[in-house]
Design a protein around this nucleic acid. Sequence first.
DNA 1: CTGTATCCTTAGGGATACTG
DNA 2: CAGTATCCCTAAGGATACAG
Lengths: 145, 145
Amino acid sequence: MPKRGSDLWHGCPVRFGATVLGDPWTLLILRDLMFRDARHYGDFARAGERISTNILADRLQWLEGEGILVKTRDPDWAVRVIYRLTEKGRGLVPVILSIIDWSEAWDDKTEVPADFIAAYRADPAGFAASIQESLRQDAARDGAA
Amino acid sequence: MPKRGSDLWHGCPVRFGATVLGDPWTLLILRDLMFRDARHYGDFARAGERISTNILADRLQWLEGEGILVKTRDPDWAVRVIYRLTEKGRGLVPVILSIIDWSEAWDDKTEVPADFIAAYRADPAGFAASIQESLRQDAARDGAA
DNA sequence: CTGTATCCTTAGGGATACTG
DNA sequence: CAGTATCCCTAAGGATACAG
């Protein structure tokens, strides 16, 4: 293990990650995509935290530009758009899971289903992989591979 | 694995995590504490991203209030304060590591030492634990246990 | 030097109206 | 309903002066 305090990171990965994750709205959108089957605009808009529509539109557009999600037309309803995580976006599943794990450990008011957190802790990588695979299939079904 | 889309999280862990992590400055401060041996005010202030001093003071104070870091007096220089992660703060090491992992995978400009990322991927939990243990010892040495 | 407080501008974001 | 655009105000934060 390289010594901490060394001159790691000229192209700093935390700074890069912060451009995506260092925004509360983005984190909530990612959560909804990963764990709440949010696919449509309204799913995010009515997601409990009452994100205002201009912010939502801004973040969705930005995330699309970053290649973290893709928009596809809903075949059932042409005016509607389906939002899906790309592989790059699904790569953030382990990050969100580790946040959940930490909150579960340190926040009294957080209530995560016990089997969820147990399964994660038993095998974090495997658990993340199964979620990612499930999301991948969802995306493929919508033609957003 | 519990079905995605279920009514997980009334006390939502991602929302809770977002209060801490959903801010770029906080992420950078955590990085400096974890990987750059930042202990003093100036270490953060001169950390490359040129955080302005009012923002820095604000974040440090807030993180202290959250119990994520503690301030102790520097025995060598009374006017000086040492900032150290608490156990709660060290609990965020896996989160930051997963962010680094993701950035390494998806950002061209990120350059993480190969052995660092290799060690992490070989055994994420063990790697995180060794960093946490090292930080714990640092804190203990400063009397910030 | 370490750390705090003030000024002031800009942009983030809430409410809401509007379009298809 | 899905999604966009405008208004307007608050607050984040950069520059900088200040205090110990």
